[in-house]
Computed example of a mutant assay.
Amino acid sequence: MESYQLTTHCSSHSFQSVQELIKKPLPSVPQSYLCLNDDEPFVQNETLCSMKLPIIDMKKLVVEKDSDSELEKLHSACKDWGFFQLVNHGLSPPMLEKLKDDTQDFFNLSMEEKLKYKIRPGDFEGYGVVMRSDNEKLDWGDRLYMITNPVSRRKPYLFPELPSSFRMTLDSYLVELQNIAMTLLGLMSQALKIDKRELVELFEDGMQSMRITYYPPCPQPNQVIGFTAHSDGSGITILNQVNGVHGLQVKKEGIWIPVNVLSDALIVNIGDILEILSNGAYKSVEHRVRVNSDKERISIAMFFSPKFESEIGPLISLTEASNHGLQFKSIGMEKYVNDFFSRKLNGKTNLEPLRIKNEDLPTP
């Protein structure tokens, strides 16, 4: 098998595409992918019935006669879970099917073609993964990450150079998801009992990015991780499990819960930025991806965040109404993004530097 190496700006270490790696039988998982120290508890089947992700109906949220009760469900989901499945979101089945086909076609391109989109030195966007040390364990997946908004921030060799059918499908998909995201942010404002403009205006024409991930089958799936446990650095994330193969797990009360995504449902989760803006009322939650031995998994995650020039900090109206005082420091969005991508994903550690601790409070 020919070896294709993708290097990053953070390390001289190179890595091999997992999709290429499995093209011939593997006697064992390569050392760089072995992840054997994951002994955290996993939910057992008998408890699944009481530990399912909340399901929110978009249609009920916008129909007046059902909106109040569904809005309360949304509020509880954001506070207690930080995750929910969104049904009746309005995306058409033909568009979702076209998106699945085009995404699959992209990963079926030759490696020479995909390397046109590789991560370049000094950057974190593109095809591949960012390595920060030579001994860092690799996730079992190939990724394409791109900033898609503002349009002026798009790298000319990434989104604009995608195969035309894929680019056009993604363009249509982005418009639909922008509408869903802004509607949800408006509804969350309503649930938090704040002025809709206070939250929504931060996100209008804000930073939006996309991560498309291909998780190949693994002969020893319990020895690898598809995506390392982390919370998202976004305001909200909308995940499309493109080909219907499960693998996402959410951490709830110290236990990893597998998410069985409903057919055609989207997964929405709270990111660190919205936890900051809501002064801790809404929680970002750790999640990860596991792989299996016989099925590939493809997903598209869309991340919605405030404008680059904005300041991120607890919204004034929420801090004034809070009994807990200010929970987070403020930071410029541009610096936040640079800081986020300079660190390795590791649980909720990216949020911790902004959390106000007792020693940060002024002395009376």
Rank of each mutant, 00 (worst) to 15 (best):
E296F: 14
H287F: 08
I300A: 11
K283N: 04
V285S: 06
D294E: 13
N292D: 15
H287P: 05
R290C: 04
S293Q: 15
E286P: 00
S284H: 06
S317C: 13
I300K: 00
S299C: 04
I300S: 14
P306D: 11
D294M: 03
R290H: 14
F303P: 00
A301F: 01
G280F: 03
F308V: 10
G313S: 14
G313N: 07
S284A: 11
R290S: 09
S310V: 09
G280R: 02
L318I: 13
F308E: 13
V289F: 05
S305K: 12
P306H: 08
T319S: 06
S293P: 06
F308D: 06
I300P: 06
S284T: 10
A301C: 11
S284V: 07
G313R: 02
S317R: 09
E311G: 06
N292T: 09
V285G: 00
V291N: 02
R297S: 06
A301S: 13
I298E: 04
L318H: 11
R288I: 08
D294G: 04
V291K: 04
F304L: 01
V291S: 00
F304P: 01
F308K: 14
S284L: 00
H287Y: 08
E311I: 12
I312V: 12
D294R: 11
E309W: 09
R288K: 14
D294N: 10
G313C: 10
S293W: 00
A301D: 04
I298M: 08
F308T: 15
G280M: 10
K307G: 01
M302N: 15
S305D: 10
R297W: 08
H287L: 01
L318M: 15
F303L: 08
L315I: 12
F303C: 02
Y282S: 05
H287M: 01
K307Y: 06
K295V: 07
F304Q: 03
S284D: 03
G313D: 07
E296C: 09
I300G: 04
K283M: 00
V289H: 03
K283W: 00
P314K: 08
F304I: 04
P306N: 14
F308W: 13
L315C: 11
S317M: 15
M302P: 01
G313F: 07
E309F: 09
I298K: 06
L318K: 08
H287G: 07
K283Y: 01
Y282R: 08
S310N: 12
K307T: 08
T319K: 01
I298W: 05
A281Q: 14
S293L: 07
L318Q: 15
L318S: 12
I316L: 12
V285L: 00
E309V: 14
R290W: 06
L315W: 00
T319I: 12
K295D: 10
V285W: 02
F308P: 02
S317V: 10
K295Q: 14
E311Q: 13
R288N: 12
Y282M: 10
S305G: 09
D294T: 15
S317I: 08
I316H: 14
F303H: 03
